[in-house]
Design a protein around this nucleic acid. Structure first.
Lengths: 100, 100
DNA sequence: AAAGTACTTTCCTTCTTGGAAAGTGAAACC
DNA sequence: GGTTTCACTTTCCAAGAAGGAAAGTACTTT
């Protein structure tokens, strides 16, 4: 039916949509935007990485560790396909998922 | 975050979107469109009814029993809100969930 | 009486999630 | 040097969701 089970969970949809908008996002930024705990984001990020949808990069800001997340090409494509599937479902109802 | 957990599950989203398009739909029609078994549709329909989102009407066609499902006003509103929430999330990514 | 129709319910097993808390490794503080 | 803190990660656990299979229900049809 086209919906991607890896992306469909509410938290993951939010993470992926957020990442789709940016090149890369910091772990802490995503955590705050999506409003989840460290552990929950960490788990979802790992799951998305395992699926090949997200690349996790570790580095430093000054001397402090920092983690960045970004959508892989595969993740971007999967997200687009997922949104298209949502669109197809919602379009059946006559709604358009478009603002205003 | 606005997504309605009752509606969000893939099968339920499909059911609700389908019902949103019509006045009423027959059980068998919905089952075939959504491609689930009798038991799965029956359970989801009951869950949606318990949430107050769907009205289940039983009647006959000739002498054979038949069940119709329809979105309640509350269900329609919840669906609209859910779609708006999806829209809000997806819009962040720059996508629009609009066809073409 | 037996079989079929149109679902409904129960049973059971699996998957997913989330919160809480402990763990890790490096850096900063006293 | 020992203790905290920071930035996550992992483990533990308990709860809820979901689906398939199969049995059940209430009639009707053959």
């Amino acid at each position: 039916m086209g919906l991607d089970p890896v992306i469909h969970a509410p938290v993951r949809l939010q993470i992926v949509a957020l990442l789709a908008a940016a090149e890369e996002a910091e772990f802490g930024f995503v955590r705050d935007q999506v409003e989840v705990s460290d552990s929950v984001l960490s788990k979802h990020a790992s799951a998305l990485e395992a699926a090949g949808y997200v690349d996790i990069r570790k580095g430093y800001v000054g001397k402090r560790p920092r983690t960045w997340l970004k959508l892989s090409a595969q993740g971007r494509q999967a997200y687009r396909a997922h949104v298209a599937a949502l669109q197809a479902i919602v379009a059946r109802s006559g709604l358009r998922l478009t603002p205003e």
